[in-house]
Every structure is written in C-alpha cells, then in structure tokens.
Design a protein around this nucleic acid. Structure first.
Lengths: 333, 333
DNA sequence: CGGAATAATACAAACGTTTGTACAACGATC
DNA sequence: GATCGTTGTACAAACGTTTGTATTATTCCG
C-alpha cells in the first residue's frame, strides 16, 4: 500500500505537505496541491482511514443500533439513514440487540471503542431507561434516537405522530358508521403504543362515543393474540377495531371471518404499519402507515446537523377495503 | 480515556507488558496478568480498537455489500451473518450498491480502506464480472460471495440450489395439469437467475413438454415488468408461469385478473423468494423459498473457517393456492 | 535595499497499540 | 563459580496520519 510518505518522497516534499494538500488545506500552494494530487493518482494512493481515524480521534463511521435488522421497519430505517449518510461520506455500522439489555450495552461499547462519529438507535424492549446509553457514550458521541425514544436523554429524536395517527384511524372508522369500536393496543412500556391508545380514546370522545375500557386489548401485536382478542371483541359486540399492529389486525380478521362476519360490511378494521401484505390481501386492509425510510433519513440528517430537537414524521392512513362501508378515500394526517 | 500506558504507570510496568497481559500472551507471569487485569477493570480501561487495528493492519469489522438493505432477502442474510459474526467478536459494516457498478466499487474501496477483516457480498446487477472486486480487495482481504456469485473469483461461495428449485417448481406446475408454462426469468448476468431458467427448461424437457423460447421473458423482476410480461404470456396462450421473483409474479397475477382469468383454475403461478406477502394474499401465492438467514450464517461461517468451497443452501417449494388445481402439498427439495 | 509581513514548507510530536529484540534475573548444570 | 538456558520485562520501533510550531522563501512597502 502506498502512503503519503511515498508520495512525499517521490515529490521531494514532506508527508505533512502531502497530507495538507490532499485534505485541501489553504496552507499549500495551488501548484503543489496539483502535483500531489497527480502523483497520488498515479501511484494509486488511498488514504488509510484507520490511521486517519486514530490521529483524529474519531471515524467516519456512524453506528446504528436496532432490535432486529430483518424486521421490515428497521431495515427500512437503516436504508433511509444510509442513503443520507453515504452521501455525506459516512459509512454505517450495524448492531442488533435482539431486544436484550445486555446486547444493547455491548453494542454501545463496541461502537464507542470504534470511535464512531455518532450513534442512531432505537432501544430494546429490555431497556427501561437510557442511563446505560449515557454512561457508555458520554457527551462526546452524539446520539439520535428514533421510534423508541427515552425522552429524558439529550440529543435529537425522531418519532411518528402516533397520537394523531391513531386518532385519524379511529375517526375514520367512526365516519364509516361503525359505532362500537375496540382496539388492539400493544405494549404499554412503549411510548409509541401508549400514544396510539390515547389517540384512539380521544377520537372516540371527540365523536361523542363512550370509551369502554373493556374493549381495549393489551399486549396484542402478533397474529395469534390478535385472533384471540378479535374473538373477545366480537363477543363483546364490537363492529370495528383499530389495531396498533398489522399482524394482530390480520388475526382479528380471521376471527371475524370465522364468526361469519363480512368485512367491511359487518366488521371494519384498520391496522398499523402498512406491511406489504395489507395492500395485497383480499379484501385489502386499511392501515396506518409508518414511514420508516423517512425516519431514517431524518435521523441521519439530525445527526449531520447536530441539532437537538424532536422531529415528528407523519403517519399516513391508507384507507382500503377493510374499513370502507362508504367510499374509498386516502387521508394524509 | 484510559490507555495501557496509564495502567502501566499505575503498576510500575511498561505498556508492552500490559498489552501482552491483556491479550493473554504466555510471556507474562500469571501474577502480573492478574494485577494488570484488576487494574484495568478498576480504571475502566477499554482497548482503543482503532489504534489496535492500525498496528495490526486489520480490524474486527466484516464488510457486507448488498444491492439494497431493505429488501427482505438481503436484510435476512445480513441478520444471519451478523448472528454468527457477533458471537465471534466481529462487527458488521453494511454497504449498499443500489445495483450500480460504481457504488459497488466505492463500497469495496471504503471497506478496504477501513481494513476490514473480510467482505461478504452479493454483487450488483450492474456488475458484469468480478474483476473490480479482485482489483480492490487484492489477495489480502478474504471474500465470500453469496446468492449472486462470480464463479471465476476465488473465495467461498454460498448459493441456493436454483436449478433444482426451479426444476421442482416447474415440475409441480406440470403435475397440477398446466401444459403451456412460461417463465419470468430475471437477468441473465446473474448465475442464480440463469440456473433457475435452466431448471425450468429441464423440467419441461423431462416432462415431455416443448421448450418454447418465446415463453421466456427476460429482465423481469419487478411488479411492472412482471405485469407486462404476464400480459404477453397470456396472449401467447400460457396457462401458467414460473417466475424467478415474487414481485414479478404479483404483476403477472394482476395481468391474469385483468384478463378475466381465475387463479389457479385458469392460470397457475409460482413465484420465488417467499416474500411475506405471498402467504397472506388471496389467493395465497406459491413460492420457491430461499433461505436467506441460513445463507448469511453459512457465509459468515465460511469466512471464519477460511475455506474456499461452495456451500449450497437448499430452497423449499411452498405450495399454496395460486398453483393448486389439485390438492395442497408441501415439497422439500 | 532593509525589514516586516506573509506565504509555503519542513520538522517533529503526537494518536494508542503491538511486537521484535534486548536485557536482567534466576535457577540449574557441570 | 562460570556457563547456559529459561522466564519475565523493558526498550523502542513501528502502523500512517494529522497538526502545532519552527523555519525558510517570497512579497511588499517605505
């Protein structure tokens, strides 16, 4: 591998001059810079990033920590972040936590020891607060949180407007004439799910409908639990459900079919996340779309800008057949 | 940050002794090693990986290059690879090519300049051969290719049994009574697609059916091109399609519906990749499942083992409604 | 033309680790 | 007690870059 010293020797200058020339310092003469660049190209020089990082005390690597990389949502966030970071000259180091606290701490350590320029993360379900994050990263490494956020931590945050989204989804069901609307609510230690539940409640209140807590089904995010909760909801006389997840909504649809209910005539449903299958099934499923790619972009941009605020990425209600007794429509919140 | 020199000073030994103690060299006395380890723990020492990498000339980072990270297949491969590499003490640096040759070269350069311990990659459609890969990586950085493979390159390879898979898928269509079976074949500069096409052809031959080259539709991997090719296939009198991709298969289904054909009664289809939506749509779509997580695991293991061979990860034909005029069945190849 | 100001380059010390070689201490052997 | 091998440490030179300071070359002005 050719080094700046080789170039320096070939040109009869010192390595420092070569270094400055290549990084565009105003302290080298235009003529010298051109000569250096030419020689560097000729000799096939490429900067040793590791040495550069060691000297500078930081790298051009941005760490991203997610619970599971192969979940659709997170891989899209990563894709969005990467699209911005790559253009800005960074590369991306990925760590998974598998929802475990210990793995999260380990990932944070790994990233810090690699002297990453920053960390974008969505914390594990297993983490109750962000103390460990602060402990490991200190105040030297900028942090951007997305989706799952500890609001007490410093640094930028990127979230969805879960309250407004769930509000719009529920309101939509009301407008379609459903009157006894339940919800599959997810886990309450996640602020996102909690906000969706509140949005659902508020929409009912604002519509003059009673908020019946027996129609709220907690901890339902997979198909099986959605199915069971769906059966209960039907027995309780529900005619519609807003589900905080798509897979649980799918389970509820199964339950409704099994009970001989037609969708959307007898039973309406809106899911959340806009998973690929929702648009492709029959009848197609209405869903409150997250925008993970955009969240990734925003997180990356927040890191680049070094700003501290909270960015809210709007959700979009995709109205499809499963909730439309009236006409089809598409709402942006 | 505390360094080995700090520890050395605190104990009255030299940094080299500390370094050797921490890396378990037999050249330090057991007693000294314990003292060093204790002091390191007390002072909260963590090895500066960047400095270590510079000195050693390589890092504990493994680069993974994929066309697009948020494609289900690739994010699962990454997940599989990461599960193995993480356990072995490596971390994973991700690069996307967006199917572009130039981006692939840039990614390779980035990884080499970061002195990665190895590269796992699936090349871009835009790359016709692997010369650039060899040029950039040289023979110092081990390479493992997966899925899309240049067989002329050295290093380990992990592939699916595309020929056998496509053969089984096509044979299945024959067994279901379809007689004029076309194919959506993908890009022929990818050996995987080429092998699938051969499997399709061989299955027809072995079934005593004519191989009509006008029923082979090249370069169709997305929904739109699948739709167009689907229309052509229907006009040409096809009653079934084996598609080398799920999205193109979806497009073909649209085309069939538009032409008033019932699925599977009038028109059968089998896709490839077993995307999540295939099982959830109505009618559910048969698909030739890849095993991306396992491929990632195998690729990582091949890197760790430093072996050169080719690993074949079997595909599995998921038989669902879209191809079943007779009975439902599930085939393992 | 002298001297100050400025421009351009050279010098050298870092960054924190690893590792080959040298060295000291010690016990064993003859 | 001199010689030798062994064991444990110290010494010092890397790895390739960046960057503060010193030095030399150039320009400009009175």
């Amino acid at each position: 591998m050719v080094t700046i010293s080789d170039i320096a020797a070939a040109l009869g200058v010192t390595p420092s001059t070569v270094s400055r020339a290549l990084s565009g310092s105003p302290r080298v003469k235009e003529e010298t810079r051109l000569a250096v660049e030419k020689m560097a190209a000729e000799m096939g020089y490429e900067r040793n990033i590791v040495a550069s990082n060691l000297r500078k005390g930081r790298s051009d690597i941005v760490g991203i920590i997610v619970p599971r990389i192969h979940r659709n949502f997170f891989s899209n966030v990563i894709g969005g972040a990467e699209s911005i970071l790559e253009a800005a000259g960074y590369c991306v180091l990925i760590c998974q936590t598998h929802e475990r606290f210990e793995a999260e701490v380990k990932a944070l350590r790994t990233l810090r020891n690699n002297q990453v320029a920053g960390v974008l993360m969505s914390h594990a379900i297993g983490s109750d607060n962000g103390k460990h994050i602060l402990d490991v990263l200190g105040d030297r490494i900028p942090l951007v949180q997305f989706d799952r956020v500890f609001s007490e931590l410093p640094g930028a945050k990127v979230v969805s407007n879960n309250f407004e989204g769930a509000y719009a989804a529920t309101k939509h069901l009301v407008e379609q004439g459903y009157r006894r609307i339940g919800t599959l609510a997810g886990y309450m230690n996640s602020e996102a799910y909690a906000a969706r539940l509140e949005g659902y409640r508020q929409a009912l209140r604002d519509s003059g409908l009673p908020v019946d807590e027996s129609l709220v089904h907690y901890d339902t995010i997979v198909r099986e639990t959605g199915y069971e909760a769906g059966l209960k909801a039907i027995e309780a006389g529900c005619d519609a459900l807003y589900s905080a997840g798509d897979f649980s909504a799918l389970g509820a649809i199964e339950a409704a079919r099994e009970r001989g209910l037609r969708i959307p005539e007898d039973f309406g449903i809106v899911g959340t996340a806009n998973e690929a299958f929702t648009a492709l099934m029959t009848p197609s499923m209405s869903s409150l779309a997250l925008n993970p790619f955009e969240m990734g972009r925003q997180a990356a941009q927040a890191f680049l800008a070094g700003e501290e605020g909270t960015v809210v990425v709007p959700m979009e209600l995709k109205v499809r057949e499963s909730s439309c007794r009236n006409k089809l429509q598409n709402l942006s919140i």
